[in-house]
């Protein structure tokens, strides 16, 4: 009974994080995609004359946290929804395997994201950025 309660609690928690990830992907991800991968390579507003440091959001601890929340939340939401959809498309027999692979991708992605952001935030040399602009 206690074990079942614990499993239900974890289930509710994961769906809660999924829901928060949905909000993050809806409100924060569009502007990140636009700035980093559309406006910057095409030289569009608002990054046409900005430094690359600003474009990749490596300005402060606040912006680093913003990138972590946006990409981490979106990754969780996307993979979680995808892993829930695949069994409904006829892959019901492999649902536990799909779940396991999904959680591994989420965990590996979040660890890699935190690692690279930490590395960039601490060992950042702005002069290297200016050389290629």
């Amino acid at each position: 009974m206690k074990k079942e309660y614990k499993s239900d609690k974890l289930h509710a928690l994961l769906w809660g994080v999924f829901s928060v990830g949905g909000f993050i992907a809806a409100f924060l991800l569009p502007v990140l995609i636009y700035i980093d991968n559309i406006a910057y390579p095409l030289g569009l507003w608002p990054v046409a004359n900005s430094s690359l440091i600003k474009i990749v959001f490596m300005v402060s601890l606040f912006s680093t946290i913003f990138v972590f929340i946006t990409i981490g939340g979106s990754l969780f939401h996307g993979i979680f929804r995808f892993k829930t959809t695949l069994p409904e498309l006829g892959l019901k027999r492999a649902s536990s395997l799909i779940s396991a692979v999904g959680y591994i991708i989420i965990a590996a992605g979040l660890i890699a994201l935190a690692y690279y952001l930490f590395q960039l935030y601490h060992g950042f040399d702005p002069s290297l950025f200016h050389r290629i602009i």
């Binding site: 990754l75 996307g78 959809t85 991708i105 690692y115 960039l120």
Partner: peptide, 27 residues
């Protein structure tokens, strides 16, 4: 449901972009 696929792939690509920056290979 398909939107989740593109959101996931974009997040993975973004992490790859960060890895390029973190390695110092800006070009």
């Amino acid at each position: 449901e398909l939107t989740s696929f593109f959101i996931s792939i974009y997040a993975i690509i973004y992490i790859y972009q960060l890895s390029l920056l973190a390695s110092g290979d800006f070009s």
